[in-house]
Nucleic acid binder design. Structure first.
Length: 915
RNA sequence: AGGCGCGUAGCUCAGCUGGUUAGAGCACCACGUUGACAUCGUGGGGGUCAGCGGUUCAAAUCCGCUCGUGCCUACCA
């Protein structure tokens, strides 16, 4: 009989009664950092064997400085799986990135410093952006560390740093070489507030609101007026201010009302207006001042009637105004019918109508208070149309505007030369890539499919902004040829560096830099390639390498800036669902074009962090909770525990009670481990063990639970893993097993030394296994407990629980105590559990506390259970602190209970003595 | 307007390929706990699994429709 090791003062010192997360967590953060525990090691055997797991998580916009528990949630969720993979023996490559180039940062700086593009020098502006970027990154890194993210901070990238710039420029040049890039002066989406071109993905639908429909009369040109035909047509439009940009009226070819009108022309209202006083004096009209009025005096511009299948005869009057440009429909008809172009908006959304002073210079869109949008240009146009008798009516009409997602301004369409990546011809191969990717959860693929199917624009990557990756391009002032930098000349900023050679076409040395910068997604779409240092790859780096997105092959130069093709394709991309159409889509495009492969094997899509009411947390809404506060109050582990409660792909509400639940779990884990170790002592038992049913049962259950947890992590369903483990721990391990074995250590007469040794082994190895399966979720307390309780007992102990082997192997074999599952142990253990439950119910019925010994348990049991009693009864009696059991009819006068088919009554010790 | 997700206890949510009496946590009630528990344990109340119809020996689960809700996409000049 081994002596139990009771709590001593030494034990209390080594193993404090309370768990202090506020001191423990920062200590381990520092320790892990000092050891370089999470560094990617290309020399490790796992890396050399090709067991590499590279992670591509979102580089947050550091400019935002608004981290909330929603961010903490999604990064934690990714990290659960990352820690699991590390324990499975993968060489984990987990870098953090910061997205600090582009429009989001510019918008932030503009708002913070109340400045605008154009009123500050390009250099000053960029300096401010860089400053905010540095400060933001610092704050973020602090939080990520306190959250326990196992990032290799040496590998951090920034999307404005030279390495990323080089990648973006190489990507550009590679696409030029592949014939994927075009410079075109197409009509493109345009933000009048930001004064830049946009891509389709930058546009979002606004709230539905009243956007009145205006009926406008177009007179038919007199010479074409035939007897019996009408003398005018009526169109309906929500954009009356664009009437003077009309280039055609369109109808459906089968529409009977217009069939006979083939060949006729209409007069465009207001185009006959001229400024009153200066009409005779000048030709160009550039000098009109305020107070001038227009008056009829010129010729009406005439536009044809065109026939187009896309016009819906049922809509409005069946006659549609085509102007340049109100919406994509206009562009389509403009293209098909080769129509004239009448541009009347400038880059800031102001009307350019020199002949109509009342309209000229007026803003098309003005953000009013609330969500209503009032347009001064529209109001003026309506007034003019009414004045000249062209406005036939206004009716209410609900629809929604397309907004620039960064500033919520309704987008316009402009024509200006831009760089485009042709993608519209790639829909099929891109859909094929989407199908080849492993989506977790699978239904998220639908979002991708729909986006690709609905693509309507090539990817415009030009932005008329300051803070972004420059195009490595100089234009020839002589012949307008675009001259590109060579691969060995990047990264380069043409605004700072003169063209390295004369124009390739005409030999001129008169070259000017491309002033535009690249779309921010041009860079962030390269994150898997940036991590692999693709821009530094030699020719043929991927040759002979499987791009099947299976396991990666080995061979790593270990210097940070060296090419690392073995990290590509990455193992997994983790991101939220709302950027499937942007980040995920663009990354797939790039990998398809650059490497003819997928960028990663798996994609894990997380949901949103919601507030208590179920609204998405955001800075703008002001409904966010600061994760640093939560960590301070409840610990990072508790916050992570909350995050682990989300079903993959589903949103999760932030409820403080759930974080408190995590804190409770930590306390329980601490106490249970501390309790267990009191009975183990300072070394493992040498006595051969003789496990009882309780030992066999709990070990068998544990093995099953480990299997469930493994299965959960393998499919990125961390919540299944944590729920299974937590339930086992609380219910089976604490409430049953630990209660059962107390008696083994308390009363030396009941159990022999082999049985005590069995309990001690179970405690040690069960605790070790539990700590390991909890470790991905609760990295801090598991590390602390591992070092306090387990590591000193093991002969060959891992330096950290986070590099300890996962307790299950690929083939499902579990290494806990030899992985033995005893036949019938789970079934018989369930009987034991029920028998204990029945007695506990009887105690409750008789108001008898669990501490009071029982003299006798009277039991009436089903036939099938009776034969199990020899195996079950000792643990049963021990758990119930009962002297004996007697089968048969139950005495009437004792506290009794029924659980299923089990009927029991109990007699406390004193009562028996008195009887 | 299409697509996807969700609708299960007062609240927040699990319930994978259909199979005992539908579960957990929180909240609530009662009882017990000076021997691991800044508490914990035991027991209890509480559900038309949104609704209707279908398939099946068997449906929270599969199918159809309807309603509500959220998101994605498209938007109608």
């Amino acid at each position: 009989m081994a002596e139990p090791t009771p709590a001593t003062s030494t034990f209390d010192q080594d193993f404090p009664k309370n768990y202090e997360h506020a001191t423990v967590e920062p200590r381990w953060t520092a320790s892990w950092e000092a050891q370089g525990l999470y560094r990617f090691d290309p020399e490790s055997s796992a890396a050399k064997a090709g067991r590499v797991y590279a992670i591509d998580t979102p580089p947050p916009y550091v400019s935002a400085a608004h981290l909330h528990t929603g961010h903490a949630m999604s990064y934690s969720q990714a990290e659960f799986v990352i820690r699991y993979k590390r324990m499975r023996g993968h060489a984990v490559f987990y870098p953090m990135g910061f997205d600090d180039n582009g429009l989001p940062t510019e918008r932030y700086v503009e708002q913070k410093y109340k400045i605008q593009k154009g009123k500050i020098t390009r250099k000053d502006f960029i300096d401010l952006c860089l400053k905010e970027t540095r400060e933001g990154a610092e704050v973020y890194q602090q939080l990520w560390k306190s959250l326990g993210l196992s990032v290799d901070w040496r590998m951090t990238y920034s999307t404005i740093a030279p390495r990323a710039v080089k990648h973006a420029q190489r990507s550009f040049l590679d696409l030029v070489a592949k014939g994927r890039l075009e410079r075109r002066a197409d009509p493109i989406l345009w933000c009048p507030t930001c004064a830049t071109a946009l891509a389709q993905a930058d546009v979002e639908a606004g709230e539905e609101q009243n956007r009145p429909m205006h009926a406008v009369r177009f007179d038919i040109v007199t010479s074409a007026h035939l007897a019996g035909l009408p003398d005018h047509g009526i169109i309906e439009t929500t954009r009356p201010e664009l009437v003077t940009a009309c280039v055609a009226l369109a109808c459906h070819p089968e529409d009977g009302r217009f069939k006979n009108l083939s060949g006729i022309h209409f007069q465009v209202p207001l185009t006959n207006l001229r400024p009153e006083r200066l009409r005779a004096d000048t030709d160009d009209g550039a000098v009109f001042g305020d107070g001038l009025l227009s008056a009829p005096g010129g010729e009406f511009r005439q536009v044809p009637l065109i026939f187009d299948e896309s016009v819906d005869p049922e809509f409005g009057t069946g006659l549609m105004m085509v102007c340049t440009f109100g919406d994509p429909e206009d562009i389509a008809k403009w293209r098909t019918h080769k129509l004239d172009t009448q541009l009347i908006l400038d880059a800031h959304g102001r009307m350019v109508t020199p002949n109509i002073p009342e309209l000229n210079g007026k803003r098309v869109h003005v953000q009013e208070k609330g969500s209503a949008i009032y347009s001064e240009a529209r109001a003026a146009a309506v007034e003019l149309l009414r004045q000249y008798g062209h406005l036939l009516g206004i009716r209410d009409n609900a629809s929604r505007a397309s907004l620039h997602e960064r500033c919520s301004t309704p987008v316009e369409i402009q024509v200006a030369p831009q760089w485009f990546i042709r993608v519209l011809d790639l829909k099929e191969p891109l859909l094929e890539r989407g199908r080849a990717l492993n989506w977790y959860p699978p239904f998220m693929r639908e979002r991708y499919e729909q986006w690709v199917e609905n693509l309507r624009w090539d990817w415009n990557i030009s932005r008329q902004r300051f803070y972004g990756v420059p195009f490595p391009v100089w234009f020839c002032n002589g012949c307008e040829t675009a001259n590109f930098a060579e691969l060995d000349e990047i990264p380069v900023d043409p605004l700072m560096q003169a063209a390295p050679r004369p124009c390739s076409a005409c030999g001129s040395t008169d070259l000017r830099p491309e002033p535009d910068v690249m779309d921010t997604w041009m860079t962030s779409s390269l994150t898997p390639l940036i991590n692999a240092n693709w821009a530094n790859w030699p020719q043929g780096a991927l040759q002979g390498k499987s791009l099947e997105c299976k396991e990666n092959s080995g061979e790593f130069p270990d210097i940070r800036d060296q090419p690392r093709p073995a990290l590509y394709p990455a193992g997994v991309r983790v991101q939220a669902h709302e950027i499937i159409r942007t980040w995920l889509f663009y990354t797939v495009v790039k990998s398809h074009l650059h490497t003819d492969s997928l960028p990663w094997r798996d994609v894990m899509i997380s949901g949103w962090g919601l507030d208590r009411q179920g609204k998405k947390m955001s800075k703008r809404a002001g409904n966010f909770v600061d994760p640093a506060e939560v960590i301070g109050k409840y610990s990072a582990d508790a916050l992570r525990y909350w995050a682990a409660g989300a079903t993959l792909g589903q949103d999760l509400r932030y409820l403080e009670d759930d974080v408190k639940g995590g804190k409770r779990l930590l306390t329980k884990l601490w106490n249970a481990t501390r309790f267990a170790m009191q009975y183990v002592g300072t070394s493992l038992p040498t006595q051969a063990e003789e496990p009882t049913l309780a030992d066999k049962w709990v070990r068998s259950e544990l093995i099953e639970v480990i299997g469930q947890a493994t299965q959960g992590f393998e499919t990125y369903e961390y919540n299944r893993a944590v729920r299974a483990v937590e339930r086992f721990f609380w219910d089976t391990w604490c409430d049953h097993y630990l209660e059962i074995i107390k008696e083994r250590f308390r009363d030396g007469s009941r159990f022999n030394a082999g049985e005590v040794a069995a309990a001690q082994n179970t405690l040690v190895f069960g605790t070790y296994a539990l700590l390991r399966v909890f470790a991905p979720i609760l990295p801090f307390i598991t590390e602390e407990l591992y070092h306090k309780a387990i590591k000193p007992l093991l002969a060959q102990s891992p330096v950290s629980i986070h590099v300890a082997p996962w307790p299950a192997a690929d083939d499902g074999q579990v290494d806990v105590l030899g992985g033995t599952i005893w036949p019938d142990a789970q079934e018989h253990g369930a009987v034991l559990r029920d028998l204990i439950g029945a007695v506990r119910a009887a105690r409750t019925a008789g108001k008898i506390g669990g501490g009071r010994p029982l003299a006798m348990i009277y039991a009436q049991l089903p036939e099938a259970i009776v034969p199990l009693l020899p195996e079950v009864s000792r643990d049963w009696l021990a758990a119930c602190r009962a002297e004996g059991v007697q089968l048969g009819a139950l005495p009437d006068d004792l506290p009794a209970a029924t659980l299923g088919e089990l009927h029991v009554a109990i007699a406390v010790a004193e009562l028996v003595e008195q009887a």
